[in-house]
Amino acid sequence: MKRYKVEKQTAYYHLMSRTVNGEAWFGDREREVLRKMIWQVAEFSGIRVVTYAVMKNHFHLLVDVPSGDTEVSDAELVRRYRRLYPKPTPWQPMRAEVLAKTLAEDSSDAAVIRRDLVRRMHDVSWLMKTLKQRFSLWFNRSRDRFGPLWSERFKSVLVEGDRWALRTVAAYIDLNAVRAGIVEDPKDYRFCGYGEAIGGGRMARAGLLIVDRDLAGYRQTLYGAGAGEKSEKESIDREEALRVLAEKGKLPLSVLLRCRIRYFTDGMVIGSADFVDAHVKADPTERRRPRRAHAMEGADWGDLSVGTGLRKDLFS
C-alpha cells in the first residue's frame, strides 16, 4: 500500500470569520449545521480542532495543524474522502468506493487523484475556504437567497504551542456566548467546544485535553483559579474596562477574557516574546519600524506577547 507524506510544520492558529455587515443570520439550526461542518471538513484535512465557538454572526476556531512527515495511506485517504463526501455532489461526483478501486489500481489517474487529495491536507486556507463555501451553499439554498455570506477572507493569529498560550486563547473562544450575554456558563452553550465536551462530545473533549489534562483544570482558566462566587464570573462593560486601563490598572484575567479584545483576532502572533519575535521579524513586509513583540496589557497574562501593540482600540 502506498503512503504519502504531508510536509507541514506543527502550528496552532486562531481563525475567525464574520458575516457580511455582522448580520445575525444564524439561529440554532444554522449554528448546528455549521458546527457539524467544522468537524467534517477538519477531519478530512487532518487538522485537529482544539476548540471552537459558533455565534449568530461569526465563528472562531482554534486548530492544531500536525507536524511534518505525517503519513497518509490510501485507506486513510478513502476514509477521509467518505467523511467529506458521504454522497456524490455536482462538484465531486466520484463515490468513495470508486476512489478506493482507482487508488488500488495505482494508475497514472490514481497518482493525480492522490496528489490532489494530499495537497488539501493540513492546509488552514483550504480548511477555511471549503468550510465557508460549503456553509454558504447550504445557507443560500435553505433561504432561497444568493450573494456573499461572509464579509472577508478570514482572520488568522498564530499561537505558540505552549499550554498557557493555548489555554488562554481557548478560554477566550469558549467564553464567546458568555461575552454576548447568551449564557452565564459556557457549559450551557452547545455551539462551543467546552459546551460540547461537557455534553459528552468525544472529539471536543479530546481537543480541549491539548490545553489541559482535564476539563476541571481548564475550567479554572475560564473562571480564575478557585473561582466560584457569581461576582467573579460576571462580565465588565467596555467603559469600565477602559477606565481601569486608562488609570494603568489591571483587571482579573477571568474578567478581561469576558471583553472583546483585539489581541486575539488582530494580534498576528500570540505567545512568549521570543516566539513572537521569531515570527514577526521573519515577516518580509517592508516597514519603517520593524515589528517586535509587545507584552499584552490590562491583566496578568503571564509572559504572553503579541505581534502588534494595538495601543488604540484594544477592545473591539
Rank of each mutant, 00 (worst) to 15 (best):
R205P: 05
V124S: 04
E232P: 00
G249K: 04
K5C: 11
Y52E: 00
W301E: 06
E105L: 15
E196R: 15
F154L: 07
G298E: 08
S17I: 14
S125W: 02
P86W: 04
I270S: 07
E184H: 01
T51E: 05
G267E: 07
A246K: 13
E239T: 11
A42R: 02
R163L: 09
L242H: 06
L242A: 11
E239N: 13
R115N: 13
H294P: 04
S254C: 03
V112M: 04
V72D: 00
D109C: 00
F264M: 07
A11V: 10
V211M: 08
A53G: 15
P148Q: 10
G207R: 10
A100T: 00
D116R: 15
G46D: 06
I270Q: 05
L304R: 09
S156F: 00
G199K: 09
E32G: 06
P93C: 04
R289S: 09
L175Q: 06
F315I: 09
D274E: 15
G22C: 11
K5W: 09
M268Y: 02
C259H: 10
I261D: 04
W164S: 07
G195W: 04
D106N: 15
W150S: 09
V159M: 05
R3F: 10
E297T: 14
A273V: 01
L175P: 11
W150Y: 11
W138S: 01
E196M: 12
A227E: 08
W39R: 08
V269H: 10
K87W: 03
L257Y: 05
D188K: 07
V54C: 03
D162G: 12
L117N: 05
D144A: 11
M121A: 08
R3S: 15
D69T: 03
M1E: 11
T10A: 12
S254W: 00
D185A: 09
A197M: 12
L251D: 00
A100L: 02
K87A: 13
R238P: 00
E160C: 12
V33T: 13
S235V: 15
A96L: 02
R143V: 01
G302C: 04
E7M: 12
M55I: 09
L222V: 12
P290G: 08
P66K: 01
I182G: 03
D237Q: 12
V178C: 14
F191C: 06
Y13I: 05
R141V: 03
A177Y: 04
R179H: 04
V269K: 08
S235H: 10
H122C: 05
R288P: 01
S142Y: 13
K155F: 11
